[in-house]
Design a protein around this nucleic acid. Structure first.
Lengths: 228, 228
DNA sequence: ATCGCTGCCGTACGGTGTATCCACAAATAC
DNA sequence: GTATTTGTGGATACACCGTACGGCAGCGAT
């Protein structure tokens, strides 16, 4: 077959360059938009324009992918402005963590559910521990360990609860989740039974407290309690 | 065909009787054994000896199934012995919650991640709120709301962290998860860098504190802080 | 005997994580 | 220049998932 009759061979498409950072950034963008339940290896790969198995050159499995994503969030927490002094350092880290979680709600789903051992996570942990070690009321490693545990427990629980409440109350256009549309009427009926008077007072008469102010207030209360 | 030649018709197997309680109990048993990741509608149905679609007569979706399971755990928390007095009531509920989570680790995965509105969950919440409302330092609904938020946040975070640490350290025979086998050497290498001195001291020199004692100590610290 | 309804099971759809295979390009050896 | 080997990316496959929907057996009413 002469050259004029032979079709020109189609060059193989240049493979899409990938990197750990690129994969993590794409995964985070998708998780921000759709939550962890809506995140999958196949969707990330599609967004990157590659086959799903390409990701397995960079991570062993989906779990490691989550670890990557989490450490990117910690990198942001690590970069946040921080004042001097042990107390302000601890407060600043807590607030930065909360703000990161509000921007990346899926992060709240992971908090406390798996150990965070990425380099940035360790750096944030180190800064937090080093600061708390300087609190006047903390004498010795056992007290530091307990105090850190109490503080981190509060932060994890507070952030999770805030993000959960945020999701429950959010109206996302026509994508109202099944739970939210049933919550109001059902809860009202349950409270009308008279079996939960204190909960009823809280729900019906309780003011809608500003979340940032509540977090700040409770954080200082807990911090003063564990370092007093 | 005479009766002697005609095969006897095989009667349809009697359908397996189902109930909400039976489904929940089976689901809980499977989740206890395999975690939430290993739980599926199909596995529960198989265990019950029915097709998976049968479960959808009792729940709308998998999410409601989880709600059922959670309220069963709250039923147990509600039944736990409780002493008199606001402080002992609050402490007893917290400890009962922790003990339930240690028996049903998947419960810790759910804590704080979705509102708990089953009747038993509401009952436990009511008992907790009513008790805390009687604390001397709690004046008014706003303070009660904040104090409840701080307390519940701590409990959620503490239980999740304890269960996570428990899973991370558990050796389950030949089913050692990938994370645990990599944790020790990796963490040691990271700490050897010298970049995380306080974390290193905590990990290397820190005593292994007894989890129940740590929880109790931190709980009273936080409770005293928010009601002081 | 026939008909309609109900409930259960099976099939199907569109998805999941990840193991494995295959084709092809690039590198290496002769 | 040709043959062989190696590496890489895409495709296929496997075993699973939640849940929609259709078919059919059994039961009750007429």
């Amino acid at each position: 077959m002469t050259i004029w009759e032979r079709p020109e061979p189609k060059p193989r498409a240049a493979p899409v360059p990938l990197s750990r950072d690129k994969i993590a950034a794409t995964a985070i963008r998708l998780a921000d938009a759709h939550g962890l339940d809506g995140l999958s290896v196949r969707k990330i790969a599609k967004e990157l324009g590659v086959g799903p198995m390409r990701l397995y050159d960079y991570v062993v499995n989906r779990s490691e992918l989550l670890d990557l994503m989490v450490d990117v969030v910690y990198a942001r927490i690590a970069r946040a402005d921080r004042r001097a002094g042990w107390r302000d350092t601890v407060l600043d880290i807590a607030h930065a963590t909360r703000e990161a979680a509000l921007d990346h709600e899926w992060f709240a789903d992971i908090l406390g559910g798996r150990p965070h051992l990425g380099p940035h996570a360790l750096a944030v942990g180190e800064a937090n521990a080093a600061a708390l070690a300087q609190a006047p009321g903390i004498d010795g490693l056992d007290e530091l360990q307990r105090a850190l545990g109490a503080l981190n427990s509060f932060i994890i629980g507070a952030i999770r609860r805030e993000v959960t409440e945020r999701r429950t109350t959010r109206d996302t256009g026509d994508d109202i989740n099944a739970f939210q549309s049933r919550l109001g009427p059902y809860l009202r009926r349950m409270l009308d039974t008279g079996d939960y008077p204190t909960v009823a007072r809280l729900v019906i008469d309780g003011a809608h407290l500003e979340p940032a102010e509540t977090f700040a207030h409770n954080l200082t209360t807990v911090l003063d309690g564990i370092t007093g």
